[in-house]
Write a protein that binds this DNA or RNA. Structure first.
Length: 429
DNA sequence: AAGTAGAGCAACCGCCAAGCT
DNA sequence: GAGCTTGGCGGTTGCTCTACT
């Protein structure tokens, strides 16, 4: 029990992951799948424990992650889900495609709890704060982890307890109309016992919501692209790596999942925006949100060793953050002429959504090509809908291993050496 | 300009449960 | 059935950056 045996081994690296480590892990998993996590570090040539590798993959390298700030809808959904599930972050994350439990947990602890308190709501119970609470008394009830039992947030026990008033009207009405997915396979891999009634509710809750992903784009409905925590995908594959494939891209196999699994969408503008050239906005930094949150060291050096900062440091390409902003602001891109705040917000959002794993997954190269081909229609595309260009196709094709080696090489090159090439691609715009 | 507090985030830690031997 | 391994989860820590004094 307790720590994994691997953790006792010496010489295991800890702390932030370097780009090289990321690349190794990415290379290994894309080639072989993670299979048994315990063997990943060795096979991938990493001085990390298996848990660290797994965590890194799940929270960061997985291609279906979206990043950037949470939309208001997403925050609302988290609050509603938390009211039902308590601190079951993994289950909450399962309802929010592209978001990790860690991400949601961080958001909750750093932001949402405060917001709720400011609204006079106890974040633990989701009930109105008492005077004692308001005066700074200790929190009333802690939503402890629910190891194995079907308990939920104390106040949510039973028929959603007393927090129903916090749920959206849609959600409340939806929960009256549970739809049971009879095809949903029961899987032995589900560690935590399920609560059927709650699950039904959650289906409806999320369905009642605007699709979480659509909070960011008006693309196709996106539900549950990765159901590993619910174990839906496991029956779709077999053998080494199969789980991984089904985990990511079983949208091509709807016979396995009754819920369509769709990759997060990326707008044409997102792809047209110089992927990777969108240096972190000034208010971003190494480890910040969006692309800034990726350990994408613009100077190619881990900041922990270089001491450089994302906001002030230059990079190997000679781009200053401000210069990129200027590029955007100066309307190199046709859509930047749009004098609409919304469009600017969209642009910022897109910048935030970019992340280097996209580059690792070869989307940059494809995006560049697509961008060139579509340059004439980009403006219209952007105006119409962000969702018309879908990552799904890119990623799906890539993960069907049409040309894995080329993709991998491109990703590798892109990541650690050839950032200089980006300006060349830039010129094609 | 320097110091400090707070925010945000990535990663680690410890535990649990399932599976395997 | 016991013991071990492994995957997974939630809580927590520590680092970095920003904002404020």
């Amino acid at each position: 029990m307790g720590r994994h045996s691997c953790c006792y081994k010496q010489k295991l690296r800890k702390g932030l992951w370097s780009p090289e480590e990321d690349e190794k892990l990415m290379n290994h998993i894309t080639k072989h799948g993670h299979g048994c996590w315990s063997s990943v570090p060795k096979l991938a040539g990493l001085q990390r424990c298996s848990k660290s590798c797994r965590l890194r993959w799940i929270n960061y390298l997985r291609p279906d992650l979206k990043r950037g700030a949470f939309a208001q809808d997403e925050e609302d959904l988290i609050v509603e889900l938390h009211a039902v599930l308590g601190n079951r972050w993994s289950q909450i994350a399962a309802q929010m495609p592209g978001r990790t439990d860690n991400e949601i947990k961080n958001l909750w602890n750093s932001s949402l709890k405060k917001k709720l308190r400011q609204k006079g709501i106890d974040p633990n119970t989701h009930k109105p704060l008492t005077e004692a609470d308001r005066s700074g008394a200790a929190p009333t009830i802690s939503t402890e982890r629910t190891s194995g039992s079907s308990d939920v947030n104390p106040s949510s026990a039973g028929a959603l307890g007393n927090f129903g008033h916090l749920l959206s009207e849609t959600a409340q009405s939806s929960m009256l109309l549970p739809v049971y997915d009879k095809k949903r396979p029961e899987t032995p891999s589900l560690a935590r016992p399920k609560v059927p009634a709650k699950e039904l509710f959650l289906d409806q809750l999320t369905a009642g919501h605007e699709s979480p992903s659509s909070c960011r784009s008006s693309g196709p409905t996106l539900y549950f692209p990765f159901q590993q925590q619910l174990g839906y995908s496991n029956e779709c594959g077999s053998g080494d790596g199969a789980n991984m494939n089904s985990l990511w891209f079983n949208q091509n196999d709807f016979s396995c999942n009754t819920i369509s699994t769709v990759m997060p969408t990326v707008s044409p503008s997102a792809l047209s925006t110089p992927m990777g050239l969108n240096l972190p906005p000034d208010n971003h930094r190494h480890g910040g949100t969006g692309i800034g949150s990726a350990p994408f060291y613009w100077d190619g050096v881990n900041p922990s060793s270089s001491g450089s900062t994302g906001s002030s440091g230059s990079n190997s390409m000679g781009f200053e953050p401000q210069s990129t902003n200027s590029i955007l602001e100066n309307s190199v891109f046709p859509w930047t002429d749009i004098g609409v705040g919304q469009e600017k917000d969209t642009r910022v959002q897109l910048v935030e959504e970019l992340k280097w794993p996209d580059l690792l997954h070869g989307t940059f190269a494809e995006a560049t090509t697509a961008m060139q081909n579509q340059s004439q229609s980009l403006y219209d595309d952007v105006i119409k809908a962000e969702s018309q260009f879908n990552m799904e196709g890119i990623c799906a094709s890539w993960f069907q291993n049409q040309q894995p080696q080329q993709q991998l090489q491109a990703a590798s090159d892109m990541y650690d050496k050839d950032l200089q090439r980006m300006p060349l691609s830039f010129e094609h715009i």
